[in-house]
Amino acid sequence: MPRGHHDLGGTPAGPIDRTEHQLDDWEILADAVNQALGAKGIRRTDELRRAREQMDSDLYRRLSYYERWIASLETILIEKKLLTKEEVDRKVAELAAKWGEP
């Protein structure tokens, strides 16, 4: 049976990178929005895990930790009809205009 891309125990892997990075504001925000939604019972941790398990495997491997959180959060919020992908796209463009894009 196919092993999920998240199911990593015992798979071939190299040395462990022990470099640590100071979290960026967007990572802190991703963490906090996620926890706040959990605290209000709007999403369950297992739903987010499931969304990360179901995402495209190349994407799962390519994204950073909090990028995966954001992707799975959007999936679950769309699934729960709390927002739509189009709304997020529109808001991204709005913020880009406000922040001054190149």
Binding site: E27, V33, I70, L73, E74, L83, V92, E94, L95
Partner: peptide
Amino acid sequence: YARRVYAIR
């Protein structure tokens, strides 16, 4: 993806 979390927020 980082941009999207500001939008989602």
